[in-house]
């Protein structure tokens, strides 16, 4: 995978030169504040107890641990999308998309390289969240370490698959803000990150099932606070894998058209 490696290295160098390390503070802060506010609300408003409906929907009464897993995963997903989905439109804005498109390199290894860099940098950033969680005295149980690792990988793959299609949409439309924020809001509302999907109307729950991130979050929540073992998690992992493949196939199929549209739009 020389192209993936070269792209990851290139992006690492460019990012290191463009942003000071303190930039990571701005990345982690929203997640830290979400957890801190949940902590405050849970103890001050909720009296340190969750309702029966939450426990039934989430399979746990460890509300804060549920929030820590969901918030971390959500902000991690947002970071990945910001890097991977915006890779091509960033090339377009800096005047290098043409040079990239006329090269014989495949787009998949290029995007994988970008995502590889994004995963590495985001993991380093989000490890610092552990300090916030520890300072608030929140303990996060893990019922299945392999399940948690597979769930994390599934989430990365699911976000990557969504990013390929979203990236194509961005360059075709020549716009990033509306499309990325729409996806962020949609994921946050229906993806089962910070509250159980049982609270959602039935049609929205079915729509959520079409997103590979939903099943990935089921695996993550199940392996941390859900008390599920790996065999119990496998069906949702399989659903996630199938949806990831479907989204990736769709995204990669549409990408050449989106690239052509992007060039035509600026002729």
């Amino acid at each position: 995978m020389p192209i993936a490696w070269a792209t990851a290295w290139r992006t690492w160098q460019m990012t290191r030169r463009a942003y000071p390390w303190t930039y990571a503070v701005g990345t982690v802060l929203p997640a830290a504040l979400t957890i801190a506010l949940a902590h405050l609300g849970f103890h001050v408003i909720g009296g340190g107890a969750v309702g029966d409906d939450f426990a039934a929907g989430s399979g746990t009464t460890a509300y804060l641990a549920y929030i820590v897993v969901g918030t971390t995963a959500f902000h991690f997903a947002v970071r990945l999308i910001l890097w991977s989905a915006k890779a091509l439109i960033t090339e377009q804005r800096q005047g290098t998309l043409g040079a990239l498109l006329i090269a014989p390199a495949g787009r998949l290894p290029y995007l994988l390289g970008f995502t590889g860099f994004a995963v590495l940098s985001s993991v380093l950033e989000f490890l610092t969240l552990g300090l916030v969680v520890a300072a608030l005295g929140i303990t996060v149980p893990v019922s299945s370490v392999p399940g948690a690792l597979l769930g994390a990988l599934a989430l990365i793959a699911a976000v990557f698959a969504l990013s390929v299609g979203l990236g194509g949409l961005m360059i075709a439309a020549g716009e990033a803000h509306i499309s990325q924020n729409t996806v962020f809001i949609m994921l946050g509302l229906v993806g089962g990150f910070t509250f159980p999907r049982d609270y959602l109307p039935e049609p929205v729950r079915w729509f959520a099932e079409l997103l590979p991130t939903t099943s990935a979050m089921d695996v993550l929540h199940g392996s941390f606070t859900g008390g599920q073992s790996l065999p119990e998690l496998l069906p949702r992992l399989a659903v996630c894998a199938a949806l990831t493949c479907a989204h990736l196939f769709l995204g990669l199929t549409c990408l050449p058209r989106a690239e052509a549209r992007a060039v035509e739009r600026t002729y």
Partner: peptide, 27 residues
């Protein structure tokens, strides 16, 4: 393709790094 009106190189990389990266893209 060499287009005079378009940049087609990365500004936050050195000249050598740019050629190395495009060399990778062309295998």
């Amino acid at each position: 393709l060499i287009a005079g009106g378009e940049r087609m190189v990365y500004t936050r990389m050195t000249g050598r790094e740019n050629l190395w990266y495009f060399g990778q893209l062309y295998d």
